[in-house]
Design a protein around this nucleic acid. Structure first.
Lengths: 128, 128
DNA sequence: ATAGGTGCAAACAGTTTGCATGTAT
DNA sequence: ATACATGCAAACTGTTTGCACCTAT
């Protein structure tokens, strides 16, 4: 991750253009708008390198490929829309979750994920 | 899921013998103790059928194959040990999570997952 | 000039599926 | 007897890797 290339710029731009976690496919599609020759291997390699460097954070959902979001945001969790399969950021955190760990278990991280239908899909369904 | 076969009995027995979510590999290994010829395809087919029937509930963790647990337990969440990669049940739920959903988003389900080191692995690490 | 990056294609792991055989009903 | 279930092997999907070419430094 030492050189600045056009494909990496395009991948970074994809994340800069949105505030929700993106899948490799979403990144590939968005970045190809600027670099049409971009291949999936480069996207995977770049996402993995950025995640290893701590620049991106992986966010996962059941049965779905991992999403990635830029690191450094304040603590938050996620919402996953069952219809459009897009991931969204949530604002708050219930807190005090570590105390749910059984005795002898060391808790160093927690995730809270909400599932349902996002505003866009809810509106589209209601309009039908 | 109409007939009772020895392989299905072995798969059910694997779940009866433990109180934590099991991966297809764990189910296969456990059930092979009783039915050595059991193949992975049968395990996957059975798990999918039982999940579709509502008898089993899939439980997933980032970068991990799905685990399954028997349905009908009271509401709970899970702990995932980073070392042994086993899943465990937790007792409580912080509640009031739906209110974290943004306006216009319909929340119909939530997951809380804790990550860390389980008691077994913590004891093993301390003993080294 | 040269180390690092890219793109293609092949390799891979986990899961699903087609088909012939086996078995509970 | 027959429809359903099993096991093998092939197919599939998403991701990783080998290798030759390219490019930022």
């Amino acid at each position: 991750m030492e050189r600045s290339t056009t494909q990496r710029a395009a991948i970074r731009a994809a994340f800069a253009a949105t505030d929700r976690p993106l899948s490799p496919q979403e990144v590939l599609a968005a970045a190809r708008a600027q670099v049409p020759t971009l291949g999936p291997a480069t996207v995977y390699r770049t996402l993995n390198a950025l995640a290893a460097a701590g620049t991106l954070i992986p966010v996962t959902f059941p049965g779905e490929p991992a999403r990635y979001e830029v690191a450094g945001k304040k603590h938050h969790h996620h919402f996953f829309c069952r219809l459009c399969r897009r991931a969204f950021e949530l604002a708050g955190c219930p807190g005090r979750l570590s105390r749910l760990g059984p005795p002898g278990f060391r808790v160093d991280h927690h995730e809270v994920t909400l599932y349902g239908v996002c505003a866009d899909c809810g509106a589209a369904a209601g309009a039908e």
